[in-house]
Structure formats: C-alpha cells, structure tokens
C-alpha cells in the first residue's frame, strides 16, 4: 500500500490531519512527520525526507505545502503524487514579512499565548470563528508546538524562495486544494499553481477558510481519496 506523508502547517501537529488519517487508511498508510527543528524550509524538507519511505504520496497544508515545494526541488523522484493545500508557491512579500516580524517580537516578549488568538480571524471562515471547540484545537496544537519551534518555523517561512519557476517541472498527479474564503493563501494563488503544474487539478471548497482539513474535513478527505485512487 502506498504511504501518504501529511505535512502540517505552522503551529499545527498531527491533529491537523486527524480526519484524513482516520478515513484514508484503506487506500494509504498515513504518516505525519515530526515538525523538525530546522530553521530553514529546505532543512525542514530534509527532515521530512529522512522520515519518509523511498516513494510516497505527499500532501502539505500551508507551511506543509511550502515544505512540499522544497521536497519537489530536492527529491522529486521520490514523490508519486502531490497535494498542495491552502498554500502558495510565492515568496513572502515585504508586508507579510513585517507581519511575521511582529509575531516574532510578541513571542520573544513572552507573549506566545497571544499569537493563535490573533491569527484565528484570518485562519478560519467567518462562520467558524466562534466555534470554541475548533479554536480550542488550534490553541492546543500551538501550545504543544511551543514558542521555540514556532520561532524557527517563522524564520524558515520568511526566508523561503519563490517556487513558481519550478512548477512546470512537476510530473505527478497533483491536487491543488483551497477553501473559497481562504484569507491567507487565496484562491488566486492556487489558480496560479494549478495553471503552471502540468497534471494539476484545482478543487475549491465552499464555505471554507485556511484550515480546510479541520473546517471541512469530509470534503478534504473525499477529494484526497479521489486524488489517491484516481
């Protein structure tokens, strides 16, 4: 059976993929790698590669997608399928970097606990921002990741290169998946990837923000099932 490597996003752990690991077990062996301790995207990619089997299907959400792009640069021959979820191929803009710098400063001032509540309005669809159980899950994952790992990951994200030049070389079945109301990585960024990647299929989930695997788990799992078995 194929192995599906599921790479979480910033401040997330394996719970980000809980629906997928629970319901895709009949078509793939699911593996959620450790976040890793590197402070560069290529370092994080190498950490994922070290935990993965020789060949695998690869899915990444947000920072996980950014790591997936790095894996496609480092070891494309090991990736049999690719799912890019709520992510981008672009580098940070100056404005994005400056927003991240503010989060870094807060964390260095000992205010890490305030980071996730600050991010929630951008992470979730407006109709889910009052869902205390869902926001509780985000808080709980962030607490487990902790400030030290968070800082390394944010530095890695800030320093990432623009990957758009390499998209045309992706030669595997690729799912590009986005929530219609994703406020962080927009539909436009996903259209751009889907147009540039030769075997890409773009899927848009309605009434969904950035954290699609938790916000619309059934839809994401169904689309990933088609991608894994198609």
């Amino acid at each position: 059976m194929q192995t599906l490597v599921l790479v979480p996003g910033l401040l997330c752990d394996e719970r980000l993929w809980s629906h997928q690991t629970r319901y895709l077990g009949d078509v793939a062996h699911c593996l959620v790698p450790d976040a890793g301790t590197a402070n560069s995207i290529s370092g994080l990619a190498e950490s994922v590669l070290a935990q993965a089997p020789p060949k695998f299907a690869l899915a990444g959400l947000s920072m996980g997608g950014i790591i997936a792009h790095a894996i496609m640069a480092l070891a494309p021959e090991r990736v049999e399928r690719l799912a890019l979820i709520s992510t981008t191929a672009r580098a940070d803009t100056a404005e994005q970097t400056s927003r991240r710098q503010r989060l870094i400063e807060m964390t260095e001032q000992g205010r890490f606990a305030e980071v996730t509540p600050l991010l929630v309005p951008a992470l979730l669809h407006p109709t889910r921002q009052d869902d205390a159980m869902l926001t509780g899950q985000l808080l709980s994952m962030a607490t487990r990741i902790g400030p030290a790992t968070f800082l390394r990951h944010v530095h890695a994200i800030i320093g990432r290169p623009d990957r758009r030049v390499q998209l045309a070389a992706y030669a595997v079945p690729t799912l590009v998946l986005v929530g219609r109301e994703d406020a962080i990585t927009t539909l436009e960024m996903h259209e751009e990837m889907a147009q540039a990647i030769p075997h890409a299929r773009l899927a848009v989930i309605e009434e969904c923000g950035h954290i699609s695997t938790l916000e619309r788990p059934h839809a994401v799992t169904a689309l990933m099932r088609l991608w894994l078995t198609g």
Partner: peptide, 16 residues
C-alpha cells in the same frame, strides 16, 4: 461525547 467521541456525518457546523 461532544468533545471525545464526535463524528460528524458531513461538514456541517456543530451546535453544542
């Protein structure tokens, strides 16, 4: 049950 045994039938919004 809501917190530890929740299994939605599809992607609707929960209502505790």
């Amino acid at each position: 049950s809501f917190l530890d045994d929740q299994e939605k039938l599809t992607d609707y919004a929960t209502n505790p």
